[in-house]
């Protein structure tokens, strides 16, 4: 779903197709879902972000506006993806939003320790879910001005 010039607004790392569809549904409603790249696991997320493997021909300085990252992912989990993104000077400035089912305090604390920009518990209540998807898209795509890549 990347735009013709290859720009991606949102990189969504989500292995649950239901959550993906529900989030996209809301983003679409507010025309925020034009350029969403969905990847299914932590390994693919890292390949995408660092332009290796399947995404070797991508430009690493071409940042998504925001990464929506689930914590529980196959192969490499969200916390590890977050750690690598925030450790690398090339990708450190990309805003990362943890979007997860986990209400565990230790996940939250670990995420903030690793430098996450926002942490959102996916609500079971759909109205709340819509609200988070909408404000999330609005905030990170329209309001937040990301710093220029170093």
């Amino acid at each position: 779903m990347a735009s013709p010039d290859g720009r991606v607004d949102i990189l969504m790392v989500e292995d649950n197709p239901n959550d993906e569809e529900l989030t996209l549904h809301e983003l679409r409603k507010y025309h925020l879902a034009n350029t969403v790249q969905v990847v299914r696991d932590g390994q693919e997320a890292l390949e995408y972000i660092f332009c290796t493997g399947r995404y070797a021909d991508r430009d690493v300085n071409e940042h998504p506006h925001v990464i929506l990252l689930d914590i529980k992912l196959p192969f490499i989990d969200g916390l590890e993806v977050l750690r690598r993104v925030k450790q690398d000077p090339r990708t450190r400035t990309i805003p990362v939003v943890m979007l997860t089912s986990s209400r565990e305090e230790r996940d939250l604390i670990e995420s903030y320790r690793l430098g996450v920009n926002s942490y959102i518990v996916k609500p079971v209540d759909f109205d709340q879910f819509k609200e988070s998807a909408r404000t999330l898209g609005m905030y990170w795509l329209l309001l937040n001005k990301p710093p220029k890549a170093a």
Binding site: N18, D19, L22, T100, S102, K122, P123
Partner: peptide
């Protein structure tokens, strides 16, 4: 409880979400 927190909430979210749509 970690498993409950994550794995039980996910299908519920799908049920509620798609029903709401």
């Amino acid at each position: 409880s970690y498993t409950i927190s994550h794995d039980l909430r996910a299908p519920l979210r799908a049920i509620n979400g798609f029903t709401s749509i």
